[in-house]
Write a protein that binds this DNA or RNA. Structure first.
Lengths: 201, 201, 201, 201
DNA sequence: TATGAATGAGCTTTCATTCAT
DNA sequence: AATGAATGAAAGCTCATTCAT
């Protein structure tokens, strides 16, 4: 409740509620589960399909039954487990900081923490991943701009300023988790929301 | 001069000035050059040492003569070509936005665009890279905070607010290049500098 | 009528008359049809059973329902679709060249062009195929010798000469199609028939 | 001396004279030797590279050091060990049968019996092999026609007849070995030479 | 009879690394 | 310092075959 994004544990708790004990669900699901974990940990390239199969508790051949090429596992993962939510949000005029905070708390992305790591780690080299990350970034900027526009009185404030504010907020949202992982430096999205909303008066 | 970070072409121009004959420099240098390009393009894991040797125009065995293990190439690259500059900067009270802009224009990092990509791409999985990125982030935050503190009148403005501002600016600086590469979305650091400086009055 | 052997199109026309709905015939037939085409094109070894099933439009498991082992598909093909006709032909004394021409036009083999390719391609390594090809060769030589004997006056002409003539004609008949496919060089069986008949006076 | 083509034993005797005991020669040569034997026996597709390495007495990886893809082994084999001799032969007017016999005894092809099998077996499916076989066929027909033309008096005898005779002789020469292997039926090239020469008077 | 998930042995190929020269 | 053949473990992937339904 105090964290802007669900933790890894909270996420797996919410998913395992529907299933049983490991091996959880059907073979295809277990393969994706395993791949998600391993890709997030060591990266796509460094993860052999054999280890995916092993962790999933299925024979090596079955991985290729469902996913003819290794890359298809990653594609399926992104397709099915990193869904960008593109819907209109209700307008709340006047409270820009609150709107940004709410956006931070509820990213327009259905994805586990592991999937989020994969999304950033592999975007560099894999087109389908990059495309998904691009959509997410666009959606966040769109919503941030919408929140700021509504919150601000009239047409005041030039467009460039608003654009920079939205992009800045998106950058923080997208990378705060990476930054924490890589540098150990925590960023409080609420403080940033207030800061940016304040900057536009 | 109008770009916040050197472009790839500008960088290689500035480097080749010191070098000379094609193929440029001695064998060790050519190996590192090749590795830098290939690691940036396809990632460390996906780059065979044989291709490094090929691109460097040296026999395969020579790579292992200079760098006993493949990982040593990456380590040397980070050590020698991603130098974080840790020095005190002169204070310019009163002009917070200008100070941030100057910081954006001159990151405390001696590294080519390719090296910067490597730094972010491999930080996840390779300790020595992560450590370097952490130092860079710390240095940027340090300087941003210093600039903002000096620029602001008195001790006014609470510490948390200043912290958030510095972290936000660092996030933008660190990831603007990645964001552009991944999403095509440009961010103007000067606008962000002004925005953040403005937010602190 | 002017071609010594049926063309692929003529063959499939004559077969589909008995069949009917697309996809043609029952599952077993469609499997054999697919195998015939694929074995002829790429060879037995290079053809996965999965592709046979795919081309036949049947599930993979069904192939093994009808043919427990992959080799059984080839065996069935040869058994059922490369039938060597072993029957006595009427004698027509005096016209050796004509008799050979007739033999060329109507090989003692019921088989599509694809099956003929399979017969030659797989004879090297698969006993049942080799045996069938041997029977065909023997039958052709038998008929050619018979035609030449009858056509020639008395017992004149030594046996070895006649043997060589029959074998030569058989070689041309058997391999003219292969030669054309492999080298693009056409051979006119009628001209060869006349040549060989003429050689025996 | 009485056989038109060298036997397998005679061929390997003539080659091993230059080398020592097995493992004979350098690694690349041993790999080609092994491949030649195995491809001839079981066919290209059915021969794993691992068995080539095993028979050659080299580690599996070395095969791919010299031949990046499996198909390159076959290509090298055809390139280096199935050389078609394209040179003019001296004219011997008047003795067509003798000229053809000499052609039969000395095919314009430098290749072991094993290579000859490979040439015919793989021509169907591998372009480079087919091209080589086509060249051989063309050369044989060329020489046979040349021999028959010279041997025959004046311009007598129509061109089509001569063409058929040359093609027939080439077919017999090319396939006599295959026919013998596949059907057990021996053909005496000398008898065929005499027959065909006789047919043209 | 019909189906497609499941299996695992084995395939081609890759690659970091070693080493004699 | 320089070289490229040699090595073998392990990678991605294929495929005939089995089997529960």
């Amino acid at each position: 409740m105090d964290s802007p994004l669900q933790t890894a544990k909270a996420w797996s708790r919410s998913r395992s509620r529907r299933g049983g004990q490991p091996p959880d669900g059907d073979a295809r699901t277990r393969i994706l589960d395993a791949a998600e974990e391993l890709f997030a940990d060591g990266g796509y390239e460094a993860t052999p399909t054999a280890r995916i199969a092993e962790l999933a508790g299925v024979p090596k051949g079955l991985v290729f039954h469902y996913f003819p090429r290794k890359i298809d596992v990653l594609i399926a993962l992104v397709d099915e487990r990193a869904v960008v939510v593109e819907e209109e949000v209700e307008a709340v005029p006047g409270d820009a900081a609150g709107a940004l905070s709410r956006l931070a708390r509820r990213l327009p992305l259905h994805a586990s923490p592991a999937m989020r790591r994969i999304l950033f780690r592999e975007a560099d080299t894999h087109l389908s991943v990059r495309e998904r990350l691009g959509r997410l970034n666009a959606e966040i900027i769109h919503r941030a701009r919408f929140a700021l526009e509504l919150a601000l009185p009239g047409g005041r404030g030039d467009a460039a300023r608003l654009e920079a504010a939205a992009a800045t907020f998106a950058a923080v949202l997208l990378y705060q988790e990476s930054i924490c992982l890589l540098t150990g430096h925590h960023i409080d999205p609420d403080a940033v929301a207030e800061l940016i909303a304040g900057a536009l008066h």
